[in-house]
């Protein structure tokens, strides 16, 4: 029962809760470029989902065999194979889609969503879970692309359901719905480049508002959003790219703790070094005391020296204990 519930969760989290486009902020290039119309976005979403599901399955099957150091190039080979397959299928059966997607069809291979899911999910989970995750994420991606495409098409072009991706011109014309007023006076800027940015921003703002209402925190563009975040060492990222905050989604919570841990480790190291130094000094103080004792036969003076040395050692112990307590 538990297993089944979590499987359903894997399937549905990609649709709304962890929508790859709007919540995880991956795959922004195709989102902005291919959403000039609803069917365009839907076609792109379907193509990317196909690649995502297939590559998730294959990568989770091969996860144990692929050596860790070369895993990213291996994933890229698998994904590129499926993208070539999708290119052929689209070119053969959906020529209008092929023409409108242009260079973004082969660019599915570097889509952060696919590489990111392979990196974070498929290489750690079983085949069925990976397939469900692919289906969920693909559905979420397609849904958000379609909605954004619909908005941009409606305001920027005054039509709905234009540019159907199968068949020929006549079919496309017959499916297109022209909204009466907006069709004559479309807001062309929305259909062009700046409109893409702005509509995407508005949709993310709406999703952020929903997230804030539920008490979560929206994410930011950062190293954590990049699929290769595990490949480039994150401390280097944080240090060199200048205090970019790494968000802490569930999958990356462990990695987000890593910088904090390194600080703790640093503090521990400093404390350990100080303790070692203190111990060394105490040892040397004792050696000095022994020397002093052997040099100076006066018992009173020797006792005073010993007391002083013991006091010093006790002080140093207290300091190291304090440092240990602080951690």
């Amino acid at each position: 029962m538990e297993n089944k519930v979590s499987r359903l969760q894997i399937l549905t989290k990609g649709i709304i809760k962890e929508n790859p486009n709007l919540v995880l902020l991956l795959g922004t290039c195709p989102t902005l470029a291919t959403t000039s119309s609803a069917f365009n976005g839907m076609g792109m979403g379907i193509a990317a989902s196909f690649v995502l599901i297939c590559s998730n399955i294959v990568i989770s099957l091969l996860a144990k065999i692929i050596p860790d150091k070369v895993r990213i190039p291996c994933y890229i080979v698998v994904i590129a194979g499926f993208v070539t397959l999708v290119q052929f299928i689209v070119q053969a059966y959906a020529v209008p889609l092929y023409n409108s997607l242009g260079v973004f069809l082969p660019l599915i291979v570097v889509n952060c969503i696919i590489l990111g899911r392979a990196e974070m999910f498929a290489n750690k989970n079983g085949v069925l879970d990976s397939a469900l995750d692919g289906i969920g994420m693909g559905l979420g991606f397609t849904l958000s692309l379609t909605v954004m495409g619909a908005i941009r098409e409606l305001i920027g072009n005054g039509t709905l359901l234009s540019g159907f991706f199968l068949g020929d011109e006549a079919l496309q014309e017959s499916l297109t719905i022209h909204i009466p007023f907006v069709n004559e006076h479309p807001m062309l800027i929305i259909a062009l480049a700046p409109g893409g940015f702005f509509v995407y921003a508005s949709i993310i703002a709406f999703v952020n508002w929903l997230i804030n209402r539920k008490g979560g925190t929206p994410r930011d563009f950062a190293c954590g959003g990049c699929a290769l975040a595990s490949m480039c060492t994150q401390e280097k990222c944080v240090a060199e790219l200048g205090e970019i905050e790494i968000p802490a989604p569930k999958a990356m919570a462990a990695k987000a703790e890593a910088p904090k841990m390194s600080e703790e480790e640093k503090a521990a190291k400093i404390a350990a070094a100080k303790a070692a130094k203190a111990a060394k000094e105490a040892a040397q103080a004792e050696a000095n005391a022994a020397e002093v004792k052997s040099e100076n036969p006066d018992p009173v003076l020797a006792a005073a020296e010993n007391a002083l040395l013991r006091k010093k050692a006790a002080e140093q112990e207290a300091v190291t204990e304090k440092k240990g307590d602080e951690e």
Binding site: P194, F197, F198, A201, I204, F221
Partner: peptide, 22 residues
């Protein structure tokens, strides 16, 4: 405004820059 903080306002800024380059 709160929903726009972070990514959305960045995207809107990019929209304005893109408009300028148009």
């Amino acid at each position: 405004p709160k929903p726009f903080q972070g990514v959305p306002i960045t995207m809107t800024t990019a929209a304005l820059l893109s408009l300028a380059f148009m």
